[in-house]
Amino acid sequence: MSPELQSVSPAVCLFGVLTLLLCPSGLCDCKMPPPIAHGSHEDVSSFLSFTTVMYYECDEGYILVGEPKISCKYSQWLSPAPQCKALCLKPEIENGKLSVDKNQYVEPENVTVEDHYIETENVTVQCDAGYGVVGPQTITCSENGTWYPAVPKCEWEAPTGCEKVLAGRKLTQCLPSPEDVKMALEVYKLSLEIRQLEQE
Score class of each variant (00 low, 15 high):
Ile63Met: 11
Ser25Phe: 09
Asn103Glu: 15
Pro108Thr: 04
Ser7Cys: 11
Thr124His: 11
Glu109Gln: 10
Val165Ala: 14
Pro80Thr: 11
Pro82Ala: 09
Thr172Arg: 13
Gln126Leu: 15
Leu14Thr: 09
Thr19Tyr: 09
Leu185Trp: 02
Asp43His: 11
Cys58Ala: 09
Gly132Trp: 00
Thr160Ser: 10
Glu107Gln: 11
Pro35Glu: 13
Asn144Val: 12
Asn122Met: 11
Leu20Trp: 13
Asn103Cys: 00
Cys84Gly: 09
Glu109Asp: 14
Glu193His: 06
Ser9Ile: 05
Ile139Trp: 04
Gly96Leu: 06
Leu78Val: 08
Cys88Gly: 04
Gly96Gln: 05
Pro33Lys: 10
Val165Met: 13
Thr138Arg: 10
Glu179Arg: 11
Glu60Lys: 10
Val134Cys: 08
Ser99Arg: 02
Glu60Ala: 11
Glu92Tyr: 06
Val8Phe: 13
Gly145Phe: 00
Leu171Lys: 01
Leu98Arg: 08
Met32Tyr: 11
Leu87Arg: 12
Cys58Leu: 09
Ala86Glu: 02
Thr160Val: 13
Leu78Asp: 11
Ala86Asn: 03
Val113Ala: 07
Cys154Phe: 00
Val165Thr: 12
Arg169Asn: 05
Thr138His: 02
Gly161Asn: 05
Cys84Ile: 08
Val111Cys: 10
Leu27Met: 13
Pro108Ile: 04
Leu98Cys: 01
Pro68Lys: 03
Asp101Ala: 07
Pro80Asp: 13
Gly132Asn: 07
Tyr131Glu: 03
Ala150Asn: 14
Pro3Met: 06
Cys30Ser: 01
Cys141Gly: 03
Leu5Val: 08
Gln83Asn: 09
Gly130Val: 03
Tyr148Ser: 15
Val8Pro: 01
Ile139Val: 06
Cys58Ser: 08
Asn103Gly: 14
Leu98Lys: 06
Gln126Trp: 01
Asp59Ala: 10
Ser40Asn: 14
Leu171Gln: 08
Val100Ala: 07
Val65Gln: 14
Gly16Leu: 13
